[in-house]
Simulated scan of single mutants.
Amino acid sequence: MKKTLVKALAVWMACAPFAARASDGRCDYKQDWLSSACERVMRVARDGTWDLYLTGYGWHIDGYDDPGSLNANSWGGGAGKHWTDMNGNQDILFAFAFLDSHKNIQPIGGYARQWYTKPVLGGLSLGGGYFAGFTARSDVAHYLPLPLALPIGSVRYRRASAMATFIPRIPGINKGDVAFFWGRYEF
């Protein structure tokens, strides 16, 4: 418990200057890409519309000794906000928690960018993009926040989306590939 608290405090201290600067609406960093990223996040936080997330399935594809012994029912949920640009693409902030492969709680949160096709058939569109953020697992550094960046894809019908990502095998971290699926409803 004490080590976990120290780790959490260290992460908070490292992120505090960025959070403080962004919280007062200033995104005037010396690097243009950092200012642009800050402005996107602030726009979603300030002007975005709320979302509801429900998680549901983790497919353990290959590399596992006994994939049947792992939890595929990744039940959980959370909330987020999105902002839609004039082309129908979205910037998304999200946070949710779910049951991982070993039935332990795994939180995740961050920023996502999705580009969508033009809607067809009364509102059906496909989306693709990426997300970057943090997660934490009990079996990897005992809940030390871990940065991640992964691709995402989605099928959206009006306000409801089925979304997915692919988590590749990383030696020393996980034993195989995983496809993770969740749903999102835009209010």
Rank of each mutant, 00 (worst) to 15 (best):
residue 65 D to N: 09
residue 88 G to E: 05
residue 187 F to M: 11
residue 136 A to Q: 02
residue 11 V to A: 05
residue 114 Q to V: 02
residue 170 I to E: 10
residue 119 P to M: 13
residue 24 D to E: 12
residue 117 T to S: 12
residue 107 P to E: 05
residue 27 C to G: 07
residue 18 F to M: 06
residue 180 F to L: 14
residue 86 M to Q: 11
residue 17 P to Q: 04
residue 79 A to G: 15
residue 169 R to Y: 11
residue 109 G to V: 06
residue 170 I to D: 06
residue 134 F to I: 07
residue 156 R to F: 03
residue 42 M to E: 08
residue 30 K to F: 09
residue 65 D to H: 05
residue 83 W to K: 14
residue 6 V to I: 10
residue 181 F to T: 02
residue 14 A to V: 05
residue 70 L to C: 08
residue 25 G to H: 06
residue 167 I to Q: 08
residue 138 S to F: 03
residue 72 A to H: 12
residue 58 G to M: 09
residue 173 I to D: 07
residue 97 A to Q: 06
residue 41 V to T: 05
residue 172 G to W: 02
residue 61 I to S: 04
residue 88 G to N: 06
residue 83 W to T: 14
residue 143 Y to F: 15
residue 162 A to S: 12
residue 112 A to C: 00
residue 65 D to W: 01
residue 78 G to T: 08
residue 173 I to T: 06
residue 86 M to C: 12
residue 75 W to V: 15
residue 169 R to A: 10
residue 37 A to K: 15
residue 32 D to T: 13
residue 83 W to I: 13
residue 7 K to E: 04
residue 183 G to Y: 07
residue 63 G to D: 03
residue 105 I to C: 12
residue 156 R to Q: 13
residue 77 G to Y: 03
residue 3 K to H: 10
residue 87 N to W: 06
residue 1 M to E: 04
residue 184 R to A: 11
residue 59 W to I: 03
residue 45 A to H: 09
residue 181 F to N: 07
residue 149 A to L: 15
residue 31 Q to W: 00
residue 41 V to I: 14
residue 160 A to I: 14
residue 67 P to W: 01
residue 150 L to Q: 13
residue 38 C to R: 02
residue 80 G to T: 02
residue 179 A to D: 02
residue 81 K to G: 09
residue 174 N to S: 13
residue 14 A to P: 00
residue 65 D to Y: 05
residue 94 F to I: 13
residue 127 G to P: 01
residue 26 R to Q: 04
residue 134 F to R: 07
residue 122 G to R: 01
residue 142 H to S: 10
residue 78 G to E: 01
residue 75 W to T: 14
residue 21 R to N: 11
residue 147 P to A: 13
residue 36 S to L: 13
residue 83 W to M: 12
residue 26 R to M: 05
residue 146 L to Y: 11
residue 13 M to N: 08
residue 127 G to V: 09
residue 19 A to Y: 07
residue 32 D to K: 13
residue 115 W to P: 03
residue 68 G to Q: 12
residue 99 L to M: 15
residue 143 Y to S: 08
residue 129 G to A: 02
residue 32 D to M: 03
residue 32 D to A: 15
residue 129 G to P: 10
residue 24 D to T: 14
